[in-house]
Design a protein around this nucleic acid. Structure first.
Lengths: 239, 239
DNA sequence: GTTTTTGGTGACAAATTTTGGCACCAAACT
DNA sequence: AGTTTGGTGCCAAAATTTGTCACCAAAAAC
């Protein structure tokens, strides 16, 4: 049996049985006592917390507190999780977000450094505020999932975004703006862009945007986006 | 150099440089061409998507789309993430929650089976609905993070929960109920318990609960909890 | 207090895996 | 046609892993 597979098997057995003696493990796994002891040692090196007790009724035991999961997530999935937690903050009451944050922080630490740089930069542009109760939400539509990667790409590469925008009256116009920030006023999500044609910032409700495209060769500089006082940068929320 | 370490190093180099030839990798890693080829093969077996091109200017390249992260999360952290996403659903507009779901599904798959059973059972009791706009939120308080594990433990072991409850007028009473369900009407969170003293279900706002304790030796049976029509079980939302 | 059970360590030869070198193939570019 | 670059099969050398054995320490049983 493969050494890696054997390690996994041992962990699985310990998880299932709770506790087990070295000899029992050796038998289940088809290896010698010595080898299993070496495996336990290796697993401890890998970060597993394994308690052991000598004497009758003793054995080794995986610390249930330290039970961990290793999941492979794509960068896009991490982004999505992060934004979910961000939105969750936006939705006011945040009972367990500290734990969620800790989980996300770990995930973030395991990302490749350049992706973390991108992530940080993206989160810098993310802002969260409270929607005023008077806001009319009657025509609230669904947000296309493809909008996030489109914005992310254009924002990170600092390229103009061209998209179709449907205004409150239903009229559609083709817009081309510098993507400068993103604003969540749950349940509304906005892109904040600098519109060169109008020489000013514009907010675009994401549920009214369609067909976004980054335009090659249209480098722009980042600008300071003015926000109302009650709008908080995401990075301020996370300290 | 250790084989495992070498694999990691190769991945790191590919992530940093984007693309590299086998010979260059072999040199950086201090191994032979043949070995690096074998490593690439092993990495592919492990799920890494590695493109390769022959000829001048060719080389191997990690698929940036498939770039993955491995993070070790504790079970509690996974719970917290899950609940965050659940709450996010409760907060209506869910642009990217599919991706977040996919990430969570992966995490869930990597949990030990008994924990998944617990998780499923817990999620079965989780319900999500819309708060009526007339609700008075003026006295909305913070929710103690310790409430989640307390409820979770008592719910899973089917033990009575005893806690202090502060009613709308501020009067505190000691309650002991069977924890039967959990309800999110964002931003309000509720425990739904069967109160044996009153022989009926009661809702308890989590921001009014303190000092929860599971009572040993008070096994109860699960009951069907009646909910309003617009309240949806979490598991219905996730299909 | 002696015996038994159980985790843990060191040493060394045997078994197994990994590695490097080599020959050689296929695709793509010059 | 020649060069660059990924990819495979083969085999002996190198390195690692494994099993055996002797032995230690702690805890429980007798």
């Amino acid at each position: 049996m493969n050494i890696r597979l054997r390690h996994d098997t041992i962990v699985r057995i310990l998880r299932r049985n709770g506790t087990s003696t070295i000899d029992a493990l050796a038998q289940s796994v088809g290896a010698s006592r010595r080898t299993v002891l070496r495996d336990i040692c290796a697993l401890r090196d890998q970060g597993f917390v394994i308690h052991s007790e000598t004497g009758r009724g003793g054995g080794v035991q995986l610390d249930p507190q330290s039970m961990q999961t290793t999941a492979r997530l794509s960068v896009a999935e991490v982004f999505a999780l992060l934004i979910s937690v961000a939105a969750m903050r936006a939705a006011q009451n945040l009972p367990f977000s500290d734990l969620a944050d800790a989980g996300l922080a770990k995930i973030e630490r395991s990302l490749p450094p350049d992706k973390v740089r991108d992530l940080r930069r993206f989160l810098d542009c993310l802002h969260i505020g409270q929607l005023s109760p008077q806001q009319d939400l009657s025509d609230l539509g669904p947000i296309t999932p493809a909008l996030l990667p489109a914005f992310e790409t254009a924002f990170l590469q600092q390229l103009h975004l061209r998209f179709l925008y449907r205004d409150a009256k239903g009229a559609e116009t083709l817009r081309e703006v510098e993507p400068q920030a993103m604003l969540i006023l749950s349940p509304l999500w906005y892109w904040v862009g600098w519109d060169p044609a109008r020489d000013d910032f514009r907010h675009f409700r994401m549920d009214r945007i369609s067909d976004p495209k980054a335009i090659e060769g249209t480098q722009f500089r980042r600008r300071h986006v003015p926000f109302a006082d009650d709008v908080c940068p995401y990075n301020n929320l996370t300290r």
